[in-house]
Amino acid sequence: MKKLVRLLIAAVTCASVIGASVALAEQSVIIKGSTTVLPIVQAATEAYMKAHPGVNISLSGGGSGDGIKALIDKTTDIADSSRSMKPEEIELAKSKGVEPMEHKIAIDAIVPVVNKDNPVKDLSNEQLNLIYQGKITNWKEVGGKDLQIVVISRDTSSGTYETWEQKILKGAKVTPKAQLQASNGAIVQVVSKNRYAIGYVGLGYVNKSLKGLKVNGIQASSATALSGEYPIARPLFMYTNGEPKGETANFLKFMKGAQGQKIVKEEGFVPLPHKK
């Protein structure tokens, strides 16, 4: 019995320490979620904290699912996501008293990328589809050198993969031989070092170390993504629990405003169309 009392005291102490740290966190804004949205929000929070000293924004990645999970558990104020919330997630949120509210903050275009030494410049939707299904396995079949194609894909639950699956695979399965990389950055790293490889990344991640391909003859850019001409584009979201309040609301306003959208553009994503 005495031991039990001691254990209880220890447990209560632990709980109060955790409670105190939660209370402290309420004075700042917590943002969690998609790695695709991360570079935008990183730059935006830096600019915002510079302009509003005294506001503390803590930012972490982890993925769209993680962010939404945190929103449902009420451990974050804003959840970044590169996909819409799924019906079952909304249901779970509502059962826990969370009312998710969607805010569109930018548009992302996904670009197929190859090594700089690869002569291929343009692939059609169908060719990409067959390559990712493992039915085209050599670059010479699509106008390149006689080299095996090494297909690189994202983990099947990332938002980027989901968009790729929707727009390119259209329900077909990725070949099991496809390599898996866990982030946009890792794909850039691998493709830039491998002349056999093909991968896909958000427009913001295409840089000089690799080559972005045209899709159906259309170059991915802000203009073509906004007009809908470029076939692989998607909106990026932030979710809040109900109508945002306090600093959270201010930050969202900043994000959607001229300054925030300028950052979106600087990070290589497509800003939202101006409201008329």
């Binding site: 997630e89 983990d155 898996l180």
Partner: peptide, 24 residues
Amino acid sequence: FDSVRPMPASIAAEMGEAPFRSGH
């Protein structure tokens, strides 16, 4: 010289974005 996906890699790569309490 083939690629593989050991179990810990699969968990680490996919857990971040798997919808909470889904089959995945």
